[in-house]
Design a protein around this nucleic acid. Structure first.
Length: 438
RNA sequence: GCCCUGGUAGUGUAGCGGCCUAUCAUGAAGCCCUGUCGAGGCUUCGACUCGGGUUCAAAUCCCGACCAGGGCGCCA
């Protein structure tokens, strides 16, 4: 007898009929009908049916089959056989079955049970939850999104960089920073690569992007906030205006979503999700107009106020009716924006933008203040001590080109693209106000 | 941090003062069954978050703690 050919749910096909094959995976379901037993083996790509007619299979194999617990890891060797009744049109008649790892019972949650499992139970048992194809599909798509981002920006002449995640000061002051001991000093987990990517603009690396973790100690408790997320940041120098930034981000988003529509059909089907590429160009709504639009829905909001979650949602509805999933909101009041944003002189506004996707902010950015004196002024105006930022400010004293950039929440993009109810679905092991384990 | 809602077998739920020795489904254990189906049939197992209080009587009402879900604020 020749060596069995390794196969999985993807590679096994009716063409293997008659061949000795081996398959490995989790025992998803065991059904014993008396004279015939079925074992459904699940692997990364799908399932393989093992069919064991009592008359044709050795008694010791039947015994192992009968004693299998669900979710045990097994290796089955046997003869592939084309069979119309089996999914995929092929099944395996076992000659041996090896239990590589027996699963304990009861399971903390069912993988294919006919009952719902609450999100909290799922995240407590995430390793088990991720055995569900629809949970895993999100991460296959997320991985593709990251690849697509890298491909697009590399093609645009951007350099991928990595800035420190252990830092001495934050971009927005100290309120939302996680503090940690750094040998004999105090340090923080970076809430954004903002200061570092800007410093790079003074180096000649005039187009950079970074995809990495960002940490926020905000006491937020919503379906779109977590304490640790993947931030996709970019910065580009020698811009003529903020529009140069919008242009890159917009084409990047189109490229990413288009790539998912094109390449992720199996995952989208698993998720029962339909993704459509947003209509471009994305409408550009000035902040003042956005406020008016929100007021028009009957909500109370004053010029100068933040749109608020409900305002954002209302705006999302209005834009949806106009056929737009993605749109820009630009020129926010400078007062509401961080020190590094450039003011629109002679007005209370600023060269800043948000990118909203289906009523939720997924990205923000703007043109930066590259003039040293004005930057220091803005810092002081925000109650920050410029001397704490000397490492940053020095980069502005010796030749800093005009520049701008953005930060985009990768998980928010994935969440909205797939219409997932909670951002936690897009994070393997989410960190939020209360969850630190697993 | 504020507001609202909720905590019942491994999982998801019903019950909301005495009909509770707590419902149903799923699951687990066992038996019957040779073909695809969320396979089916029969039997069994398994739970009221914790601490006070009210009451003749509490899963059920009240208070507190803890935990969870949703909304808001804040932001990616």
């Amino acid at each position: 007898m020749s060596e069995a050919t390794p196969r999985n749910s993807k590679t096994l096909s009716p063409a293997d009929s008659g061949r000795d094959v081996s398959v490995k995976g989790w025992a998803q379901e065991i059904r014993n009908l008396g004279g015939i037993s079925f074992l459904i083996i699940r692997d990364r790509h799908g399932i393989v049916q093992v069919t064991a007619p009592k008359k044709k299979v050795a008694p010791e194999v039947m015994t192992v089959l009968g004693g299998l617990s669900r979710e045990s890891v097994v290796k089955v060797t046997g003869v592939a056989k084309a069979a119309e009744q089996a999914k995929g049109g092929v099944e395996v008649v076992p000659s041996s079955i090896e239990v590589l790892s027996a699963a304990a019972s009861p399971l903390p949650m069912g993988v294919v049970d006919k009952v719902n499992v609450e999100a909290d139970t799922r995240f407590d048992n995430r390793f088990m939850d991720l055995r569900r194809p629809e949970a895993r599909a999100v991460f296959e798509i997320k991985s593709m999104v990251l690849d697509l981002i890298g491909d697009f920006l590399t093609g645009e002449g951007f350099l991928e960089v990595f800035t420190p995640k252990i830092v001495a000061s934050g971009a927005e002051g100290g309120a939302t920073l996680f503090q940690l001991k750094y040998f004999e000093q105090m340090a923080y987990l970076a809430q954004s690569p903002q200061l570092y990517k800007q410093m790079l603009m003074s180096t000649g690396l005039d187009r950079v992007f970074e995809i990495g973790p960002a940490f926020r100690a905000e006491h937020s408790d919503t379906v779109r906030h977590v304490s640790e997320f993947i931030s996709f940041d970019g910065e580009l120098a020698f811009i003529d205006s903020m529009n140069d930034v919008l242009d890159v981000v917009e084409r990047c988003c189109q490229s990413v979503i288009g790539g998912i529509v094109k390449n992720a059909a199996p995952q989208l089907e698993t998720l029962n999700a339909s993704v459509t590429v947003p209509r471009a160009p994305y409408p550009v709504i000035e902040y003042c107009d956005a406020v008016e639009m929100v007021q028009g829905t009957g909500m109370h909001i004053d010029l100068g106020d933040d749109l608020g979650t409900e305002g954002e949602k209302a705006l999302g509805e209005i834009m949806k009716e106009k056929g737009h999933d993605m749109y820009w909101i630009v020129e926010y009041p400078e007062e509401a924006k961080p020190f590094y944003i450039m003011e629109k002189d002679g007005t209370p506004y600023s060269y800043s933008f948000d990118l909203d996707y289906k009523g939720q902010e997924i990205s923000s950015g703007g043109q930066r203040e590259h003039r040293y004196d004005r930057l220091v002024q803005r810092m002081q105006g925000k109650g920050l001590d410029p001397s704490a930022f000397n490492f940053y400010l020095d980069a502005f004293r010796f030749g800093m080109p005009p520049h701008g950039g953005w930060g985009l929440g990768v998980e928010r993009l994935v969440q909205k693209m797939l219409d997932l109810p909670n951002i936690r679905e897009t994070i393997l092991f989410p960190r939020d106000r209360i969850r630190l384990v697993p």
